[in-house]
Amino acid sequence: HDVTIHAGDKTIHVHGASEEFLRIIEQAKRDGIHEEELLRLIEELVK
């Protein structure tokens, strides 16, 4: 999957995102996670 995530003034493109990655991001959004926290989460996941 190619994913584009908008968080605040940043746009992150993730190529080859796994289903698990997508679920984590969707869950985080539903939980109302702060955008900066979401960015950190994404950066950890894509290392």
Rank of each mutant, 00 (worst) to 15 (best):
H1Q: 15
H1T: 14
D2R: 10
D2K: 11
D2S: 10
V3G: 04
T4C: 09
T4I: 14
I5F: 00
I5G: 04
H6L: 03
H6V: 15
H6C: 08
H6K: 14
A7K: 02
A7N: 10
A7M: 15
G8I: 01
G8L: 01
G8W: 01
G8M: 01
G8P: 04
D9F: 00
D9I: 06
D9C: 04
K10S: 09
K10C: 04
T11D: 10
T11I: 13
T11S: 11
T11C: 02
I12T: 05
I12A: 04
H13F: 02
H15E: 07
H15Y: 00
H15T: 09
G16R: 01
G16T: 06
G16V: 07
A17G: 06
A17M: 14
S18W: 07
S18E: 07
S18G: 11
S18P: 11
E19N: 08
E19C: 03
E20D: 15
F21E: 07
F21T: 13
L22K: 02
L22G: 04
L22R: 03
L22H: 06
L22P: 02
L22S: 03
R23V: 11
R23S: 14
R23Q: 15
I24A: 14
I24G: 03
I24M: 12
I24C: 05
I25M: 09
I25V: 13
E26Q: 09
Q27G: 05
Q27W: 00
Q27E: 12
Q27D: 12
A28I: 08
A28F: 05
K29M: 14
K29E: 10
K29W: 10
R30N: 10
R30M: 14
D31I: 09
D31K: 10
D31R: 09
G32D: 08
E35Y: 15
E35C: 08
E36R: 04
E36F: 05
E36G: 09
E36K: 10
E37R: 04
E37H: 08
L38W: 09
L38M: 09
L39S: 07
L39K: 08
R40Q: 12
R40F: 08
R40P: 02
I42T: 01
I42E: 00
E43W: 03
E44R: 11
E44K: 11
L45T: 05
L45R: 03
L45F: 15
V46Q: 10
V46K: 07
V46F: 10
K47D: 08
K47E: 08
